[in-house]
Computed example of a mutant assay.
Amino acid sequence: MLQDKEVITLAVVDDHPMILEGVQRVFQPEQGVTVAGTFTNGNDFLGFLQQQQVQVALLDITLPDMSGVELCRKVKQLCPDTCVLAFTNHQERAVVMQMLQNGAGGYLLKNMGPEEFLQCVREAIQGQITFSAEVKQIMARPTPQDLKSIPPLTRREKQVLQLVAEGKTNPQMAEELSVSILTVETHRKNLMQKLEVKNAAALVKAALECRLL
């Protein structure tokens, strides 16, 4: 448990400079928190963690090189003791669950006030699962997607879905899976039919909501 005079070390990963600046303004050493580093992409942060550890990592969900969900998993593999908190505008209940399943210690929305922000970080460092107030409301009510049955996917469809989420093109997927481009296109078509979507972005969003990614 955090001692009264111990300063929490924190890092922020977000590709919006104003967010990075704002977090640094909120957290000051005299409040018991110091910002040890700010990063605009996941790979830079992972490189930093190989040299220096932090107690708390704030991750946005949408990053230039990988999703915050994927980054959370990698951070916990590299530094299991680092408490990862989502810090984002994404309000999908399924994304909250994905972060928790990947080891996050909480989920915070960017519209929260400074006092609540600081309180959530303190709760997290004490080992509690922490949510901002609006996230608590989201978690308390099921969405239509939560009540919808999840369509069964074949092993190959799951592989294609993961590659779509990684931004791979059809030729890249065909090469990686050692199948024809036509086969990849067929799997993508089947995935979009099963998840009732019309493009790749909607496919990834629906897959996250169904907890298929």
Rank of each mutant, 00 (worst) to 15 (best):
M112H: 02
F48Y: 15
K136T: 10
T186M: 14
V197F: 05
M97Q: 12
V33D: 03
L213W: 02
T169G: 14
L2N: 08
M18D: 09
D146N: 08
H16N: 11
T34G: 04
Q128A: 10
L58T: 03
I19M: 05
V54N: 07
K148H: 12
V23Y: 00
D65F: 08
I138L: 12
K148Q: 14
A11F: 00
K148C: 09
L163W: 06
R211S: 08
E166Y: 10
A86K: 01
R188W: 05
L71S: 12
P80E: 15
P80C: 10
H90N: 14
V121H: 01
T186R: 10
E134L: 08
T88K: 06
V204Q: 01
H16T: 12
L195W: 01
A36R: 07
V197C: 14
F131R: 05
T154D: 09
L10E: 00
Q3F: 03
L2M: 13
L71M: 06
K158P: 03
A140R: 08
K158A: 11
E6T: 13
M97H: 05
Q50D: 13
T9S: 15
N170V: 13
E209L: 14
I150M: 03
A104T: 04
L10V: 10
C72Y: 10
D15I: 00
Q91S: 14
T154C: 05
I125G: 01
E209M: 07
L71V: 10
E123I: 01
T186H: 06
D60Q: 07
M192W: 09
A94M: 04
P17Y: 08
D44C: 03
L213F: 07
Q77P: 06
Q77A: 14
M139E: 05
V184Q: 10
T62N: 15
L147M: 15
Q51T: 13
Y107N: 06
S149W: 10
K158Y: 09
C79G: 10
M1H: 05
G167Y: 06
T130K: 03
D4Q: 11
N102W: 02
L63K: 01
T88F: 05
